[in-house]
């Protein structure tokens, strides 16, 4: 299973972080610092895996953004890369050509999408179309509630 997912920029700014195992704030800070440093320092031609303590970091770079999943030692790294690609494609579809700024200002939406792709650190759905439909239906539910009642969510 996946222990945590991190999204960060070339400048080592965290754009999204999700922990599937309990992690103390102090450890989180350390992990995020270590990982951004380790991944950003790597050669573009190097393999997309870094061994970090008990976990393996599988990462992939998209323009200025790095998507990094921390998986167990026995995980399939190649399949993990496919999962990252899967999530990114869904984000791309959802935001319409996703860019870093979309994620900066809509990090909560990136979380909603993430929760439709992974649950409890495991992959949940392999159909991009289905995930897109599920997220937009929930967004529609929110919209409808906003129309009907007092303002809910901030955007």
């Amino acid at each position: 299973m996946m222990r945590y997912a991190l999204l960060f920029s070339k400048q080592a700014k965290i754009r999204l972080s999700k922990y599937y195992v309990p992690t103390k704030p102090k450890d989180r800070t350390r992990i995020e610092r270590d990982i951004t440093a380790a991944v950003l320092a790597r050669d573009p031609k190097a393999c997309n895996v870094v061994e970090y303590g008990e976990v393996k970091l599988v990462y992939r770079r998209y323009a200025s953004l790095y998507f990094c999943l921390a998986v167990e030692r026995d995980a399939n790294e190649l399949a993990t890369l496919e999962m990252i690609q899967h999530y990114v494609e869904i984000l791309d579809k959802y935001f319409g050509n996703v860019c870093e700024l979309d994620l900066v200002f809509n990090f909560h939406k990136a979380h909603y999408v993430l929760d439709e792709v992974f649950v409890a650190g495991h992959l949940q759905e392999t159909s991009k179309k289905l995930v897109a439909r599920l997220v937009s239906e929930q967004d529609a539910l929110v919209e409808r509630a906003k129309m009907g009642g007092p303002a809910g969510e901030d955007a």
């Binding site: 979380h111 909603y112 539910l141 929110v142 509630a145």
Partner: peptide, 15 residues
């Protein structure tokens, strides 16, 4: 009761 509140509340809880 409302879905938007629940949605953000649950997300807040997990984070």
């Amino acid at each position: 009761r409302e879905f938007p509140e629940k949605r953000i509340g649950y997300l807040g809880l997990t984070l």
